[in-house]
Nucleic acid binder design. Structure first.
Lengths: 201, 201
DNA sequence: TACGCAGTTTATCAATCGATAAATAGCACG
DNA sequence: CGTGCTATTTATCGATTGATAAACTGCGTA
């Protein structure tokens, strides 16, 4: 097999493998699943950590869709529809076996990746959502009345409710069905309660 | 040291230790923290798994407060106050370094404890909350109009928003302050949106 | 003082881990 | 045909792991 194909196959299987067993999963077992010998892995990745690092990039960095940010501020559509489109698409990208479990494993291991990802999410998405909600309710914009910690926490709540569906399904192994309609439910609940917590009066 | 005291001290330290490193934490390192030698652990617990099992019981089983169920159905108090009292107390019991991390570790490891605990939570607490909410809004009781999956999901959303505070703080190592007031915020959002999703009309 | 026993340590085993070096297999090319 | 390179395997090292056996320590007691 060509080196490029082999490397790609190793990474693909490593994603599934580390998502299942965590980063303590053994290289011998991974090689077994690939139908190759364990030392061959070291021909493609200098160390196990290098392979783990590569898995991060593959799963987290590649699945972020820059279009999301444009979608959220596209005022040609009602905010409710924008939020629904975003969270439907976002949940499809994030609520997978690999993403949810690897994210939790990396958090427990103390890697700084989670913080970096969530800082990005908070500043690129949460802020937008609050701003658009304020416009919707004719409140002062963020540059006049700064976004409060509690407004951000309200969005955190929505985000948590959605992400926790993946935790229940892929970490606790509980049956979770109709994720699409649950996402809509959470969004409905959030929009219903949002006016009561917004600042900028 | 007396055997009882020694055993208690081992368990106490093991809780902290496994919460930090997961169940792959090494017995030698645990013994080091206790200031004892590693073989001594095997004088008190036949295997490492037996010690891990004991840690589960210590953290999860002992922290459930049966009074919570009574509190939720005490109609002398307004439902909003009952829910606030419950979630304030519950979050204090659950949102700790040990509880949150051990719960996630055990989920990722595939132990059935999470499912059993959450089934208990769902049937003993979520059902009560929906029932009380229906009474509050003069809707049909659960034995006439069965509680729907979506009603349960709404409570799951509230629960997730609160539990995720612990995930952010103790797994992602993010700063999360004023948990008490955030819990009240989530509760306010939930109660604001609840009428829109309740069944039993 | 010598005995006995509970609590603890020292020494060590066998299995497993990531990693490395050397040998082998297979294919392109002259 | 054979030469050389690339992909892969075999064999193995050194460190670490859970676990066990044997020796030691300190104290109460006859």
């Amino acid at each position: 097999m060509s080196p490029d194909d082999r490397e790609q196959e190793i990474v693909r299987e490593a994603v599934k493998f580390f998502a299942e067993f965590g980063f303590e999963g053994q290289t011998r077992e991974l090689a077994k699943r690939l139908g190759i010998t364990q030392p061959l892995l070291y021909r493609y990745f200098p160390t196990k950590d290098a392979l783990v690092e590569r898995v991060y990039q593959e799963v987290f960095l590649r699945r972020w869709n820059p279009f999301w940010e444009e979608l959220l501020v596209d005022r040609k559509k009602p905010l409710r529809d924008r939020l629904s489109d975003f969270y439907q698409d976002y949940s499809k990208a994030i609520l997978t076996y690999e993403w949810v479990r690897l994210f939790m494993f990396s958090g427990l291991k103390g890697l700084d990746f989670n913080t970096r990802y969530l800082d990005l999410l908070r500043h690129r998405v949460f802020g937008l959502i609050i701003s658009e909600l304020r416009v919707e309710h004719s409140l002062k914009p963020a540059d006049v009345s700064p976004i409060t910690a509690m407004e951000i926490e309200a969005v955190w709540g929505l985000h948590a409710a959605i992400f926790y569906l993946g935790v229940r399904k892929f970490i606790y192994s509980m049956p979770v069905e109709n994720i699409g309609s649950i996402v809509d439910l959470e969004l409905r609940l959030f929009l219903e309660g949002a006016p009561a917590i917004l600042s900028g009066r």
